[in-house]
């Protein structure tokens, strides 16, 4: 399967952002011919995709299509999985992240990740947010660290809710609060990209709405790649959508265009609910 071309008719495997204002935006992540395997399972097949600064891109597709694998290739979290293998190229700001000199530990400080199930550390709210800055040595004294923690919590709208109980365990918060705490933990390190793996699938509709609003706000400062099962969510939060099926990138384009005028038969089947 090959990725269908966008309206522009650019290269057959190269999905570009189209002729809109996005096109002149600088490319943040450039994925070329990326293949991934888990043991014998070929999870990603020759994915090529550009992700630009300032955009929120949603990865959609049926279960097991490789969305999460693609996401985890972007911060090399698949390196930690026994038997996982990657071939191809992923460039962040023009630098190959799978090249030898790149330390995945440093990479993950630039490409943060929010997981499907809220997974705060069983430590205090403060320590949850302060952990990243601490291990990376981002604060030289306690006041700076306090500052990072407060700003990060403020950014996710959690500060006024937890200001008086920063010493309480992060795991005591509600599900939605926990997920916002996890986002605060991610941005405390100051990443350029935030990967979100179905961040709302474990949350109720109200908490989901808050996270979606937050994604809109964060989009001003971070490149966001979000995996979602909800087409409504993809429509609400993303500026572009990439549809994957069986490990291949089928189609990528502006969100409105994908949902109103899909070019590929598989995409159409999926968004109209015939497969998935």
């Amino acid at each position: 399967m090959t990725a269908s071309t966008d309206e522009t008719g650019a290269g057959p495997r190269e999905a570009t952002t189209g002729p809109t204002a996005d096109a002149i935006r600088e490319t943040c992540i450039a994925i070329r011919e990326l293949d991934a395997w888990y043991g014998d399972i070929h999870a990603l097949r020759s994915i090529s995709l550009d992700i630009a600064y300032g955009e929120v891109i949603a990865l959609i597709g049926p279960s097991g299509c490789g969305k999460t694998t693609l996401l985890r290739c972007l911060n090399r979290l698949n390196d930690e999985v026994e038997g996982a293998r990657v071939a191809g190229s992923v460039r962040l700001d023009g630098q190959e992240i799978y090249a030898r000199p790149v330390d995945p530990v440093a990479l993950r400080a630039r490409v943060g990740m929010v997981f499907q199930k809220p997974n705060p550390f069983p430590k205090s709210i403060y320590d949850n947010v302060a952990y990243g800055p601490r291990i990376h040595g981002l604060a030289t004294d306690r006041a700076q660290l306090d500052d990072i923690v407060h700003v990060s919590l403020e950014r996710v709208g959690l500060l006024k809710e937890v200001r008086d109980r920063l010493d309480e365990p992060g795991t005591d918060l509600s599900g939605g609060q926990q997920q916002r705490l996890c986002i605060a933990r991610t941005i405390a390190v100051g990443p350029e990209v935030i990967l979100m793996d179905e961040p709302c699938s474990a949350l109720d509709p109200i908490a989901t709405a808050r996270i979606e609003d937050l994604i809109d706000e964060l989009a001003e400062d971070y490149v966001i790649v979000i995996v979602t099962h909800s087409m409504q969510q993809a429509a609400r939060v993303s500026s572009r959508v990439a549809y994957l099926n069986h490990g291949s990138l089928i189609e990528v384009g502006e969100t409105n265009r994908i949902f109103t005028n899909p070019q590929h038969k598989l995409t159409e089947d999926y968004i109209t609910g015939r497969i998935g």
């Binding site: 530990v105 993950r108 943060g112 997981f115 705060p120 390190v189």
Partner: peptide, 26 residues
Amino acid sequence: PGSIREAALGVGASRMQVVMDHVLPL
């Protein structure tokens, strides 16, 4: 839980830090 390991790896902890800061205490 593996989610704790991934959370720590996700913010850029090294494997040793994952073990000493999170896995062993738990």
